[in-house]
Nucleic acid binder design. Structure first.
Lengths: 265, 265
DNA sequence: CGTATGATTGACATATTTCAAGGTCTGTGG
DNA sequence: CCACAGACCTTGAAATATGTCAATCATACG
C-alpha cells in the first residue's frame, strides 16, 4: 500500500502520547489544534522485520523516524568496511537527526527485531515548526539532548574501563525502558553480544566475560538474551556513577526528567 | 536593554562573514534585511583571557556562543571529579548547543588562550528562527552536524588505536583551521599534551611518544606547541582514512609497520 | 537431526597505562 | 639579568587490561 492507513485522530493522539512523539509534543503546551497538525503529517510505516533496513548510508534523507515498538540499531561503516554501531533506538526514541545536515543519511538503520516506526517528513515538520514555535523549541531541545548524550558517551569511551562501559550500557537500557513503562530490572537484549561489544568499543569475548563476572558478583543474571538485574546500585557503582548522590535526576541525560510515570503500560 | 556597543552594520556583517556566524547565515539565502535582524541580536563579549571560563557546569544557559578568535575547550567533570574534555572550539565554531535541552550547561567552557566570543541570546535566536525559516533550517543543520561529528568521534574512540586517534585529531585541526583560512600544515597547538590526551582517551605519555614517532616517521615536525605537517596523506593513512588510493600495507594497525626498529632514535 | 550462528571460556600476545625519573621551557622575584 | 620554581613534556621500564586466537558449547533453524 502506498498510502499508509489513515488512523482516526483519537487513536493517533493516544499513539503519540504513549509512543514516540511524546517528546515532540507533550511536554509543552501544544494545543489540540496544533497537535492535530503534527499528527497529520506523521505516517505509520509498515513494520520492519528483523534485519530490515530503514535506511542505508548514502540514502537521501526525507524524514526522521520515531520507534513505536521494537529496536533499531544505527551504524556506519569505517573506511575499511567494518561496522561501527552508533546507537540502539528503543521505543519512543527518534532517529535520523544526524542526516539533517547533509540531507543524506550518514548511517544505516536496521531493525533488530520486528519494529514499527512512525515517519515524519522533515520538510513538513520544519514548516510546522515555523508555525508552532513551541514545536521548534522542542525540536531544538531534542537535538540538543542528543548532543548531550553523545558527549556523555564519549566520556564513557574515553575514560571508562570495560566493566564500567558495560554497566553503564545496561543502566542506560534499564532507564530508557523504565521511562517507557517497561521493567527496569528485567528485559531482553535485542542486540547480539557482538553488537554490544561493537557499540562499546570492546571485543565480544570481553563482553561475554564481563557478563559472567557481573553474574558471579550477584549484580545480575544473564540467561542468553534475558537480563535480570539484581543490584542496580551495584551496577551504578561499577559504572562509576554515584547513584544515590542526589544528582541522578538532575542530569537525566535522557530527557524525561519528570518523576511522573509513563502514562501507559 | 543595556545594548552592548552598537556596531555599525557594515562592519558587523563583515564580522559575521569572516568570523563565526558564517555558518549561520551565509550559506543560505538570507536576505540583507534578515541578516541585519540576526546581527542585531548578537553581542560581542569582552575577550576572555587564558583560563577564563565562559560558563561552568550548572550555569543557566541563556545564549549560545561563537568563537571569533582563539580557542575554547569544553569539558565535564566525571563523577569522581576528573576532567573530561568534550571538545576544542576554533574560530568560527559554535558552542553551548548541548545546553539547550535543559537550559543548564552540562559542560564548562574555558579559554585556552586570549579568545573573543560572540554571544547569541538563544531566546531571541529562536524568535528569529520562527520569522526566518531559512535560519531555523540552518540551525537544525548545525545541530545535526554536531551530532554527526560526535558519532564520528565515537567511532574514533571505540575502534581506533592511539596513533589513529592522534592522527585524526591533528587532521581535524588542520582541516578546521584550513576552512577558516589558516594554514593546514603549520599551526600552534593551543592545548596542552594533557588536554589532547584527555580528549582522545589516552595517557599523556602515549601522546608524547606518538608525537616523537610521527616525527621520526617524517610525517610532521613537533617543536613544543608548533606543529608542521609534512605528509598529510601519510597522516590520513595512519588515521585509517583513505584519502586517495588504499594502501595500508597489509595489516599494520600500528602506524609503524616496520618490524624492525622505529625509524627514530 | 545436523548445520550454522552466536556465546562462552582459556591461553597467550600486546597496546597502552602506570610508575618513576629527568629534561625543558616560562614566568617571577631577587 | 640571573636563578629558581613549577608546570609541562619526554623517555624508559614494568604492569595490566583488553584484544586475539582457538577450541568448545549452546541455541536456533531449516
Amino acid at each position: 500500500m502506498s498510502a499508509p492507513k489513515i488512523l482516526d485522530l483519537g487513536s493517533l493522539k493516544h499513539a503519540c502520547k504513549s509512543c514516540s512523539l511524546h517528546d515532540l509534543c507533550l511536554p509543552l503546551g501544544v494545543s489540540d489544534d496544533e497537535l492535530q497538525l503534527l499528527e497529520r503529517i506523521i505516517n505509520r510505516k509498515r513494520p520492519l522485520q528483523r534485519k530490515d533496513h530503514l535506511y542505508r548510508p548514502g540514502d537521501r534523507m526525507t524524514s526522521i523516524y520515531a520507534v513505536r515498538s521494537g529496536t533499531v540499531k544505527t551504524y556506519t561503516l569505517t573506511d575499511d568496511g567494518q561496522e561501527q554501531i552508533t546507537g540502539f533506538h528503543l521505543p519512543g526514541e527518534l532517529l535520523g537527526l544526524d542526516a539533517i545536515s547533509d540531507g543524506i543519511h550518514p548511517c544505516a538503520a536496521r531493525a533488530l527485531e520486528t519494529t514499527s516506526i512512525c515517519e515524519i517528513p522533515f520538510d513538513r515538520l520544519e514548516e510546522l515548526s515555523v508555525r508552532i514555535p513551541e514545536l521548534q523549541h522542542q525540536l531544538f531541545r531534542i537535538m540538543s539532548r542528543e548532543i548531550q548524550t553523545d558527549e556523555h558517551f564519549m566520556m564513557l569511551l574515553g575514560k571508562k574501563a570495560s566493566d564500567a562501559r558495560l554497566a553503564a550500557f545496561l543502566l542506560s537500557l534499564s532507564s530508557r525502558l523504565g521511562i517507557r513503562g517497561f521493567s527496569r530490572t528485567e528485559f531482553n537484549l535485542t542486540m547480539s553480544r557482538n553488537d554490544i561489544a561493537n557499540y562499546l568499543g570492546l571485543a565480544v569475548e570481553t563482553v561475554s566475560r564481563l557478563f559472567t563476572r557481573f553474574q558471579g558478583a550477584g549484580l545480575m543474571q544473564v540467561r542468553r538474551k534475558l537480563i535480570t538485574i539484581y543490584d542496580l546500585d551495584g551496577l551504578h557503582t561499577v559504572a562509576g556513577i554515584h547513584p544515590v548522590g542526589e544528582d541522578l535526576r538532575g542530569h537525566c541525560n535522557n530527557g524525561q526528567c519528570n518523576p511522573g510515570k509513563s502514562p501507559m503500560d
